[in-house]
Simulated scan of single mutants.
Amino acid sequence: MPDSNMSDLETMEDFRTTLSLEENLSQSTITAYCSDLEQFFEWLRSRNLTFSCEMDESLFTEYFLLISEYRKSNTANRKLSSLKKFFLWLSSKNLKNKNPISNLKSLKGVSSFSSVLSVEQVELLLSAPDVTKDLGLRDRAILELMYASGLRASETANLLFSSCMLNDGVVLVRGKGDKERIVPFGLAATSWLQKYISTSRRNILGERSSKYLFVSRRANCLTRQFLWKCVRQYCSKVGLNNACSPHVLRHSFATHLLNNGADLRSVQILLGHSDIATTQMYTHLAKDHLVSIHKMHHPRA
Rank of each mutant, 00 (worst) to 15 (best):
K176P: 04
R224I: 03
K108N: 08
F87N: 07
L137M: 14
D8P: 04
A148I: 06
E180S: 07
S81E: 00
R218C: 11
S111Q: 07
A32T: 13
K85R: 14
P246K: 04
L160W: 05
S111Y: 01
L227M: 04
V173H: 07
D288E: 13
S149K: 05
I30Q: 09
A277Q: 02
E54D: 12
K72W: 00
K211P: 14
P129L: 05
L159Y: 03
T283W: 04
T29H: 04
L37T: 00
T132V: 11
L285D: 10
A301T: 11
H247S: 09
T190R: 15
Q280P: 06
E120N: 11
L126G: 08
L143M: 08
N203P: 00
Y212H: 15
K195I: 03
M296C: 12
F51M: 14
D263G: 05
D275H: 04
V122S: 00
R218P: 05
S106F: 10
K179T: 04
R217S: 10
V231K: 11
S102A: 15
F253E: 08
G261F: 06
T17C: 03
T61H: 06
A128W: 01
S149A: 15
D178Y: 13
L125R: 09
L270Y: 00
M281E: 06
T11Q: 10
T283Q: 08
T223R: 00
K108S: 11
T61I: 10
Q225M: 12
R265Y: 11
F214N: 02
F51D: 07
L65Q: 12
Y282I: 02
S209W: 06
I204E: 00
N24G: 06
R201K: 00
R202Q: 13
A32N: 15
R140F: 05
S163H: 14
K295E: 09
L257S: 02
V248Q: 08
T11A: 14
D168K: 15
F51Y: 13
L145G: 08
M55Q: 13
Q39L: 10
A148L: 04
G150I: 04
L37P: 01
A219K: 01
D130N: 15
S81C: 05
P2A: 05
T132K: 13
C244E: 00
Q233S: 15
K108F: 02
T223H: 06
C53D: 15
R181N: 08
S28A: 11
K98N: 13
T283E: 03
R16M: 14
L151C: 08
R152A: 01
I30H: 01
C53M: 07
S191T: 12
I182H: 02
A243M: 04
Y70I: 12
M296L: 15
L125P: 09
L135A: 11
Y63C: 03
K287E: 09
V267Q: 08
T278K: 00
S245A: 05
S20H: 12
Y282V: 05
L160S: 14
T223M: 02
A243P: 02
V122K: 01
H251L: 12
Y282A: 03
D14S: 12
F40E: 01
E144K: 06
G175L: 06
L135Y: 06
T11F: 07
S68N: 13
S127R: 12
S68E: 10
Q27Y: 12
